[in-house]
Nucleic acid binder design. Structure first.
Lengths: 228, 228
DNA sequence: TTGCTTAGCAGACGTTTGTCTGTTTTATTG
DNA sequence: CAATAAAACAGACAAACGTCTGCTAAGCAA
């Protein structure tokens, strides 16, 4: 027999497993819990689930399939903030750009209260900082920044993402890519839109696949059979 | 027979019914749809659901109970899913790693239903793909992947993030950094943990600032006065 | 009218899933 | 050590559930 786990230990892990599945909108069946924990018997999983209900950690109505639910007490403590992804750069006040909202991104609620917006990066001038063309940056709107911050600034009516450098009176916007030259704006004309808090990149539509298959990887025809 | 409803009218009501149930984390069964709309036959409900899938308004995987899900398009302003950020790599079943949860990250609800976890990347073997040391990847847990996918795989008991290549029988895990060599695992021993959907990097504690001040930017003492 | 399509109904079948009973193993406690 | 409780296992059963085939009725267009 599988070695017995100390009391409560496995139960807590099962609770979190079910909790995550429920938060993901994907309620597990008893047998899925069984398999996730390598139980040999369905009843082992069900016993744990029954106990969790008895302890008030889970809810269950009737004997429906995948019928376990989270009680109110387990509701996510801090609902995330929804940050607008702007299709165009907000030169003026952020409120004027709301008609250009492409979608909303959830960010951790620790940023609640800050004025945030998201922007899609164009170009690869920040390549060596791991910010690539098409990435989305989450920006905290603020009129000034500290040296070393990655900021979004308005230069000649266009928004740029650069690293801020300060040497005495001289202000420099440095790209992170040797192919690009630093920008030295007139300190009085430098308009800081905000400071980059986070970068995100999605691989759903994999932009690398096209380039990669050029190397001679399996043709699309046998992609299915080539699944690993 | 119950009077027939004009084309599409009932279908739209069914869609909203299912959608609301899914957003509430309470997926309905076919028979629950049947009862909600007073159909006399299960098949009446199922026909509508099948059509909704065909029209792309709903998703369905396999023949699981309560298996209908929302596609990406419907997930715009839905409450985000909370994804666990694991402090340690989930070598075994995901359920065994739940005790190592550092925190939860909000991701767009388009991923609702998938089994997701987040992981902190170590090393810069994927540097040229814009995945740097310390970045967080959001992974969809799945046992296989397609060529070109960026995957998390177990190699020699350690988790690695690499790009998957397949040439016939030969499987290759390619870093995106010329300083690293590709890994050619035994196809039978390659264990795919999941596929990387997204990368995130936080600049809150700016990792670049230390390196940047070396260039002679203002010393820490006048950082404040140097704010721009 | 005829033909076609869609909506709905009826019944059945097989799988998934929840549940139950009984047994074995392990840790703990007196 | 024996007694006890908890954990896990084994096997079975019944309800829930998804799916399929065949059918009728209603609307629509040629």
């Amino acid at each position: 027999m599988t070695p017995k786990t100390p009391p409560g230990q496995t139960r807590e892990r099962i609770y979190r497993f079910v909790r995550d599945r429920l938060l993901a909108g994907n309620p597990p069946s008893v047998r899925e819990v069984q398999e996730a924990f390598n139980f040999k018997a369905v009843e082992s999983a069900r016993a744990h689930l029954t106990h969790l209900v008895k302890d008030g950690l889970l809810l269950k109505e009737g004997s429906k399939a995948r019928g376990y639910r989270l009680p109110d007490s387990a509701a996510v403590d801090d609902p995330p903030v929804q940050v607008p992804l702007l299709g165009r750069v907000p030169a003026g006040p952020l409120s004027e750009a709301i008609e250009d909202i492409e979608s909303y991104l959830p960010v951790r609620s620790k940023f609640r209260g800050a004025e945030l917006f998201a922007l899609r990066v164009e170009g690869d001038s920040m390549r060596d900082a791991g910010i690539l063309d098409g990435d989305v940056v989450i920006v905290q709107r603020q009129p000034n920044a500290d040296p070393g911050d990655i900021i979004v600034a308005m230069i000649d009516g266009e928004a740029t993402v650069k690293t801020l450098f300060v040497e005495g009176r001289r202000v420099e916007l440095r790209p992170q890519n040797p192919e690009y030259a630093p920008i030295v704006p007139d300190p009085d004309e430098l308009s800081v839109l905000g400071k980059v808090l986070e970068v995100r990149r999605h691989f759903d539509e994999n932009p690398f696949r096209a380039a990669l298959t050029r190397y001679g990887a399996s043709s699309t025809s046998n992609t299915q059979s080539a699944r690993v």
